[in-house]
Simulated assay, not measured.
Amino acid sequence: MNGWLLTAGGIAAATALVHATAGGRSVVRPLLGSAVAAEPKRTLHVVWHMVTADLLISSIALLALAFAAAPSTALVLFIAAQYLAYAALFLIVTLTADWPRPLLQLPQWMLLAPVAALALIGIT
């Protein structure tokens, strides 16, 4: 068993759960109740669920890889790159917004970055 990948998978699974529950209440519901036109509203709704699926599938993959005799380095690198990109995007958007305490306004990067780091450590 690879403890690094197991921990990465656990954090990824927790991230998926937080995304689907808390994020659904704080982001999706207000979006669907907004005055945004139907097409962009529904497109963003689908994108929300695409991210949910991605987070769930990647967490399952990391958990499975943690128990693999020889985890696929390419797959771990791919998943780590996704989480690193997601964390970077949250940081860029947050830091370019004119908000007080910007790093806490969109704290998702705090769950995404450790998954990438732990996954990378797990294959070294």
Rank of each mutant, 00 (worst) to 15 (best):
V36T: 07
A35R: 15
L44G: 13
Y86R: 13
T94V: 02
L103V: 09
P114E: 01
L6G: 11
V46T: 13
E39C: 03
L95K: 00
D98I: 05
S58D: 10
T73V: 14
I60M: 05
V76L: 04
V47R: 11
L63F: 08
L44R: 14
A119E: 05
P102Q: 08
G33E: 09
H19Y: 15
M1A: 04
A116Q: 01
L89W: 13
H49G: 13
T7S: 15
L106Y: 10
A22L: 14
S34V: 00
A35G: 15
I57F: 12
H45N: 12
F90A: 07
F67P: 01
A81N: 01
H19E: 08
L95N: 06
R101T: 10
P40I: 07
W48S: 11
L32P: 05
A53Y: 09
G24D: 07
W99Y: 13
M110W: 05
I60A: 12
P114R: 02
P107Q: 09
G23N: 07
P114M: 00
V36N: 01
A53D: 06
A74M: 05
L32N: 12
L112I: 00
L17Q: 03
S59Q: 10
A97V: 00
L32W: 11
P30N: 11
A85W: 05
A85G: 05
E39M: 13
T21I: 07
A116P: 01
I92T: 12
P71G: 04
W109N: 01
T43K: 11
T43S: 13
F67V: 06
F78S: 12
E39F: 14
L103E: 09
I57P: 02
V36W: 01
T7L: 15
A16S: 12
Y83H: 04
V115D: 00
V51M: 12
L118Y: 08
T96F: 08
S72P: 07
M50P: 01
L65H: 06
A70E: 14
P71Q: 03
L6M: 15
